[in-house]
Design a protein around this nucleic acid. Structure first.
Lengths: 341, 341
DNA sequence: TGTTAGCACTCATGGACGGAGAGTGCTAAT
DNA sequence: ATTAGCACTCTCCGTCCATGAGTGCTAACA
């Protein structure tokens, strides 16, 4: 593709992204000073359509970018947008409060992303499987029910209800908690699978059954699983997009986005990959074939531990979204790292 | 209002709830065997409109119930629907799994309610302020950051990050945890405010600062506050309602429902009141003036500790929604009570 | 006096029609 | 290779009209 075609493609994408209407040759020649007439542009556009970068909704309409066109744009043409000072300040200042809960920041991130981009934003909380075991505490609830509180070095907390095979005194629960904490400290999800507790010290022998149950429980419940808590922002922003005027289409999409497993799997897929962009049909879900998803990974220390993302129409302001996501992920990483190390 | 008028009002509401179209006199006379002609019904309908129970969208259309009409129906005419065996079984069987987290059940409740009613459902997790302090555990995260895990007798867990005025050894954190657990055990949110720790035993004297900080923190953070975690189901069901065909209207509503504070306050308002019904303008939010909200409270033991609800158009199947909510709240109460006592 | 049949009137709905406008592709001239 | 000119296409939008559901009123009826 020669340079002139690229310029025209870029012009069309720029116009289309902001207007949402098919773009005609005259519009381009008027709005961009390319030094060529509408007729020439028409010929070039015809070529671009031929090679699949543009599409025509109907004969006498202008052209719109195809998925292939967007892909080319994202990979080759796009310059990452410089954010405005206000926008940068908005992100930074959002993270300046000292929260009492990790979730607060993740939730905040989703809200900020959506309000900065006007698209739907999603965020995953740090993934427990990617961090190391730090502390375990058993707390009695009823006769045989205990609450198992797990803490990892990234400050993640997980609460699980466990039913014990027999009643255990609170004092002994504490001792067992300390014992298990020692046993598991510093291990990651994989290493936990290999812990066994065959030779117990004397004092724990009478709780062999209970401890076995607890270790089994840990083995079962710390496996990688796609059901992380999902936080959302601006779910309804999609309703502002003219291409989603169709109620049935929008309903199908919103239904999909409501499912935690779906968001979770879309984001998990891209963890640790830096910034990713999936355009239209590249997404695995049929209902999202008119959407693009941009994701970024955040870290605690050196661990890539969570993912955030923006979901919008394929006609998305890619350069801005990428800039916002990049800065947000970096800032979030800094803040969390500061907090937990 | 005489009996015949009531019968006609009931008939109109029945028809309108299922069709969503204004109801004419002929429809009523055809579909219900009231032994009177359309003309008579017309006169009665005219009276009902006069007294504010019915409305007419335009001159040559049928009538639809007004908010006052629905209110009369809910208070006086409605018979609570008997649920089908399958529906009862569905609710019961949903709660038969043993979850490892309390949240699982609350989330499940929202999903079940929405799929049984085809409206939007919301659920609040048990409110920490309504239950009694049971256990406190401090877990070190970084030099001065500690994680405070709070557990109440209803099995609720809350995790808070606290910054300590100075570094404390893990062993001492444990001792402080035990100390505070003893101090606060059994107290409710209000009583916690009155705890003071002026005369410390000798061994804790050197942590006076730290303990003071922690107690202060508890005082500040266990206050009643409207920011409970909200769980949702079927958010998009509202899009199936013909009266919400209007994108702007639906967007305003969905935006409102996306806000946790809003749902939280709507539900908290009705905690402990059994089944409540708010119709149209009775709701405090402008955007919800075409919606009705039905809520129910669930308990753990004897404590009314959380609320669930269904949000739909004013043209709602009140009798079914109330039946479903009632059974769901009762079943959820049983299950949670069983679990935590 | 309450009920009903008959009838003229009202109003939303939806399809047909047609002009305006935007954009294209082709051809011929530059 | 580029461009001006032009005929052609197709959507969009407003207007018009027929249809039909439903009403209110009047007069007759039990």
């Amino acid at each position: 593709m020669d340079e002139r075609k690229q310029k025209i493609l870029q012009a069309i994408i720029n116009c289309y992204v902001s207007s949402g209407e098919p773009i005609g040759s005259r519009t381009i020649s008027r709005r961009y000073n390319l030094g060529i007439s509408p007729a020439t542009i028409r010929n070039e556009m015809s070529d671009l359509e031929e090679s699949g970068y543009l599409e025509q909704p109907h004969t006498s309409a202008g052209r719109i970018p195809s998925h292939k066109g967007y892909r080319f744009y994202v990979d080759r043409l796009m310059k990452i947008k410089k954010l405005k000072d206000e926008e940068i300040e908005l992100i930074k200042s959002g993270y300046r409060t000292k929260p009492t809960e990790l979730e607060y920041f993740i939730n905040l991130t989703a809200k900020m992303l959506s309000s900065l981009t006007n698209y739907t934003a999603v965020a995953l909380k740090p993934i427990i499987q990617k961090s190391n075991f730090k502390h375990l505490q058993l707390i009695p609830l009823s006769k045989r029910q205990v609450l198992m509180v797990l803490v990892t070095d990234a400050g993640l907390v997980e609460n699980k209800l466990v039913e014990l095979p027999k009643f255990v005194e609170e004092e002994d629960l504490n001792r067992i908690s300390q014992f298990l904490t020692q046993k598991f400290r510093g291990l990651n999800a994989e290493q936990i699978q290999n812990v066994n507790i065959d030779n117990l010290e004397r004092e724990f022998l009478r709780y062999k059954q209970v401890i076995k149950e607890l270790v089994d429980f840990l083995h079962k419940n710390i496996k990688p699983q796609y059901a992380e808590r999902v936080y959302r922002g601006g779910t309804t922003n999609i309703l502002d997009q003219p291409e989603f005027r169709d109620l049935d289409k929008v309903k199908a999409l919103l239904d999909l986005l409501e499912k935690d497993e779906v968001i979770s799997s879309v984001l998990m897929e891209n963890i640790g990959k830096g910034i990713t962009v999936s355009i239209g049909e590249e997404n695995q879900y049929e209902e999202m074939k008119d959407c693009s998803v941009v994701t970024a990974t955040y870290k605690i220390g050196e661990k890539q531990i969570g993912t955030i993302g923006v979901i919008g129409p394929t006609r998305m302001e890619y350069s801005k979204v990428i800039a916002v996501l990049d800065l947000t992920a970096r800032t979030l990483s800094e803040v969390l790292t500061e907090m937990f190390t």
